[in-house]
Each structure stands twice: as C-alpha cells, then as structure tokens.
Design a protein around this nucleic acid. Structure first.
Lengths: 250, 250
DNA sequence: CGCAATCTTGAACACCCTCAAGCATGGTGG
DNA sequence: CCACCATGCTTGAGGGTGTTCAAGATTGCG
C-alpha cells in the first residue's frame, strides 16, 4: 500500500538550530544561547521523507521525537480491529512523537503528507539533556501538556459539534498555524486529503466535500482541490460556534 | 451551583508513600527506596474533598498535580461558548492535572465525584525533583504520554464507534482499572452519573440509559442505579467491536 | 494519454438526538 | 419518621444530521 522509500541522507548534517528560521517556534526558544550548542549536538538534521513515507510506525521501538522542518506530517493510531484514527497534523516547528515519550514503542504512526524534512531528537540523548537543562524539561512538559489539551479539544469537537463546526474549526486552526510562520492566514494549500480530514474529524468523506461546497456557496471560502482561500474569517469563526444551544450545558 | 466547602486539614500530614497501599500503582513505583524519602518530602497528603467539590478550576494558577488516593475525580474543559466536555475519570493511583504541566494556568477543572482524598504534588518542588531523579522524569514523561494516548483512544471512540461500543468500552476500562487495585472486575459502583458518562462519551443521557437497559435485557450486565454487575465479560468485549465494517478502514 | 485515486453530487436510510412525561432516589426540614 | 422537592434516571415517539450506497467528475501520475 504505502511503499517506504527511505531517502534520508546517510550522514546527517550537524544541526544549526540558531540559524533555523523556525527557532522562534521550535525547541531553541526553550534554551539559552549558551546552551543551544548542546541541543544542536543531539539533533540529527536533514532527514527527508517523500509523500506517504512513514517517519515511524506504531509498535516500532521508540527511539526519537521529530520536529517538522518543512512539509507536513499526519499521525494516526490503529486499533486492535484495524481501524485508523488520524490524531493530528503537524506543521513546521511542531513536534511529532510526544505521545510515545517514556514508552518503549511508538504509540502511533507518523506519515509524511508531502515531501517533508524533519529534525530527529533521539530520546536517550534528549532525556539526558532535559535532565541537565531545567528550561528544556519544563518546555517538554509544556509541549506534552499542550498535546493533551489539543486532544481534549478534539474530543470536544467530535462529541458536541456538527460537521460544519468541525471543519470551520480545523480551517481556522490551520490558518492560525500558518500565520505563526508569517504565511498567509487566508490563502494556503491543505497538506492533507479529504479522506484524512474526514477521518480526523470523525466524518464521512462525502460530508467533508458537501460542507466545503456549502461554505463556498455562502461565500465564506473558495476551494480548488487542496487550495483554499478564506474569504470571510468572521463568518468562518461564527461557523465554529454551536448553532442551536444544546441541553448538555452545565 | 456547586458550593465549595473546603474541608482539607490545615496541617497536611507528612506523606508515607512507602506504606501506601497504592505504592505499586502510583509514583513510588518510579523511584528507588532510597529516593522515596525525597518524594515524600514534597508530597502534601491528606486533602479531602466532598462530592462535587472542585480540586482545581480551569484558569486558576497552576500549582500542583494531584494523585487520587481514594474516591474518584472527573476532569472537564469548558470552551469559550461555555460547553463542557468531560475529559477523564480518575481513580485511586491515577494523576490529575498532567494536562497543565508546564502551563501557568489549569487547562481543565477537576471535580470530586464522591468523597475523595488526594495527595498534592506542588509543581515547583516536583520539577526540582524530576531534575534530580532521572527515573521520576522518565516516569512523568510516560504518564503524560499515556494521557495523550488515552485521549487519542477517546477520539477514536467518539469518531468511529456507536453508542453501545462506547459504553461497553468505558465499562471494560473501569473494570480493568478496578482489577489493578485487586477489586472485583465484575461488581462495582460507577463513581459518575449518567450525565457524566453521556458527556464523556458524546451521547445524550437518554441514549446511555437505553444502552444500559439493552445490555441488561441481553444478560450482559445488571444495573441498579450506579451499581453494575458485569455478567458476561466476553459478550461485553464483543460489544466494543464495530458491528458493521465501515469503509474508513485503510 | 489512460488508469487509479480522489473528489463531488444525489437519494434513501439509520442512528442518535430532541422533546415529553413518568418514575426512582436521596437529602432536607417539619 | 415521613412528606416534600429537586435531581437523576428511564421509557416512548418523532425528526434531523450525517452515513451509506451509487455513480459521475476531476485530478494527477506513470
């Protein structure tokens, strides 16, 4: 199905986090300039994966976390029955594999959605470094707790929101994350397929498609394949809110 | 609505994790006997909360994680719109507040479901200790990643499973966790209301009620209020599986 | 250029929600 | 101790959102 064509360079370059354009988003923001060298010492840079290639696979021995440098990655878990649940999309500056920290095996599979470059953080070295740098340990606690919070918000989305609200929320999340990298918050390409979106949001592909066209007829956005243009951010934000108040409120 | 009648003792006892019956489940399992004293030094023991009392509240300054000692706790997040999503139930030996580690404010509210005793772990001291004890740091990474995985499994449950499958899964999860404490895996009391179950599983209360009666007529279990008796664990496990295979499979 | 995968659109059905009402439970005060 | 009321739980009927099934349109890659 998915052929893992390993392409990463045999001799990874020594990382230069300091010069990386993502240093304000990624791990460097957690360590002082003088300690940055120690972080660079353990980072394996320059791994490149082609579209659909697996960065790691659920059940494999857990060795490393990965920071996305360019491109995009999706993560998904596979249950005993073989069902897949997409659990997250990771853009440049974001960390993949935090849900396996401290485990001996990867708890999910990470797959490149397009040609993607990542920086690898071998856990053995990483845990030694977090042991020495309190700020880095604190930062990892923060990132991991953020990951828990993200997942809780996904649960809220799945359990209490309509198809339109789910999709509007995802689009605004992507928009915000593109904005963090000084990219356009209104014009961007979706790194993932409709199938991935549907799976992530607990919907049928057909529903995702229908909602996109509905938003388009409402002049909220334009879509051409994976390209989206958010025409009315206010309306899109309004579409994330629950239409008819439900009883469930405390 | 919920009156916080603070009851915890003014002078918390010095903890004796070593003698605690939960030492095989809780934090002590992560530290050596010689280091256990240092853990006991930072643990504030003996806080007791009455039913419905808040252990901490979303938005408050984050000070501590809590280990449940007896009773049970639920956690929930409140969105901007005021909707509540129950994100977890915590039984003795389990840690509450991991989703706020590294943050400056609590990301969720924790509420006692019954008369509950907890051990408090002030984060300032905790992060100093994880800095000194690599095993404890590793253990916290593990607990936090476990929390992420749990939430991912909840997402899977919410997005791909029917009402019956969700409830069967929750019952088996509780059964397993009671079993870990050497309690009966087939006879126990639900610590939470139908409302909490419904909210957690993304269902209407009525649906939860209907599924319970359906399971009862199928001789899978007996319910009398909050008391449940699992009559057929095999059938219950079978009920967690997807009945009609969906297309979503990879 | 052609095939496979992805995406879109339409029609019918199903699961669960909403609304409504009745029943059990439990805590409180007379 | 029991009546009382609020809350939680159960059961029934009807309707809506999203799914399933089916077929066609578009994309993209060899």
């Amino acid at each position: 199905m998915v052929r893992p064509i390993i392409l990463h360079s045999a001799h990874p370059l020594k990382a230069s986090c300091k010069k990386c354009s993502l240093s304000g988003l990624c791990l460097p923001l957690a360590v002082s300039d003088e300690d940055l060298g120690r972080l660079e010492d353990i980072v394996l840079q320059g791994r490149i994966y082609n579209r659909n290639e697996l960065v790691f696979e659920q059940g494999q021995t857990f060795r490393s976390c990965f920071a996305v440098r360019s491109g995009a990655v999706k993560s998904y878990v596979i249950s005993e029955n073989g069902e897949e649940q997409v659990t997250g999309f990771y853009l440049p500056g974001e960390l993949v594999g935090l849900d396996s920290m401290g485990s001996d095996r990867y708890a999910c599979t990470a797959q490149a959605l397009e040609r993607t470059s990542v920086c690898e953080l071998p856990v053995t070295n990483l845990e030694v470094l977090t042991q020495k740098l309190p700020g880095l340990q604190h930062h990892f606690f923060q990132r991991m707790s953020q990951e828990i919070q993200n997942s809780h918000h996904l649960s809220l989305l799945l359990s209490k929101h309509t198809a339109e609200e789910r999709i509007a929320t995802l689009l605004l999340s992507l928009s915000r994350r593109f904005g963090r990298r000084k990219l356009s918050t209104t014009h961007f390409n979706l790194p993932m397929s409709r199938i991935d979106i549907a799976n992530y949001l607990g919907l049928a592909v057909e529903t995702v498609s229908r909602v996109f066209t509905r938003f388009q007829t409402q002049r909220i956005l334009k879509v051409h394949g994976r390209g989206v243009e958010l025409l009315d951010l206010t309306a899109l934000h309004a579409a994330t809110q629950i239409a008819v108040p439900k009883r469930n409120l405390g």
